[in-house]
Design a protein around this nucleic acid. Structure first.
Lengths: 124, 124
DNA sequence: CAGCATCCCAGAGGATACTG
DNA sequence: CAGTATCCTCTGGGATGCTG
């Protein structure tokens, strides 16, 4: 290997920035669910088994901070909050589909295999 | 949202299987380095600032278990070990490049930005 | 040179209870 | 309904030292 530049701790690299955004345990899942349209908190909660409300809130906040989703609060009682993908969020869906395709082609499937909703859209 | 099936804890899903494989802090970095050809342990170690030998060994073992890289030990003293991408490993490089492109286009770059070697190859 | 063995820690993830 | 607020657990990642 030529002298070249050392690869620094890769946090600042674009690939790693991208990876970090979807690193959360439920992030991809959420993006996939929202890909089919705007969703209420309760919609998401009811359709993800295993997640707690606290965790769901946290993951949603993080996705929002990263600009992947937007949050709209209706001024009502009881509260109503809707989440939807932003442009940025939508632009990431194809990569999720790539990952899914790669995973399906190259790796052994488990018995309890479940395919993310959005990944069934463009399965060639 | 229609009743449909609940999305189970997404560990068994192809996307998540794929994600887990490259989830390690140094995995993508290693794949990128090896993309330019076979590398010795010391090559990798010297070119990644911040990693410890213990950690490097661990990450390499995991990539090997996942079939992403292969390991060849020369029967010599002192030891000489070479690592290289497998077919599977090579097939993942394009996705890394996608991630990099997405990260570069859509996200603010840091000052100390470093781009993974392999990500400069196919930057359109 | 290319590891393995130990010990350690921060933070991601989770359980549970409460509320405007 | 859509959240906070606390507290707890587990594991990915790291530091350090030793060796065939």
């Amino acid at each position: 290997m030529p002298p070249g530049k050392k690869v620094n701790y890769p946090v600042a690299c674009p690939v790693y920035r991208a990876q970090r955004i979807i690193a959360g345990k439920w992030k991809i899942c959420l993006l996939c669910l929202m890909n089919s349209g705007t969703k209420r908190f309760s919609d998401l909660y009811r359709n993800m088994s295993g997640i707690t409300q606290a965790m769901l809130t946290k993951q949603l906040r993080e996705l929002e901070e990263d600009g992947m989703i937007s949050r709209y609060v209706y001024p009502e009682v009881p509260p109503k909050v809707e989440y939807s993908l932003t442009e940025l969020g939508r632009s990431f869906i194809p990569i999720i589909q790539e990952l899914s395709r790669w995973g399906s082609c190259h790796l052994p499937a488990a018995d309890d295999e479940v395919v993310m909703p959005c990944c069934n859209l463009k399965k060639e």
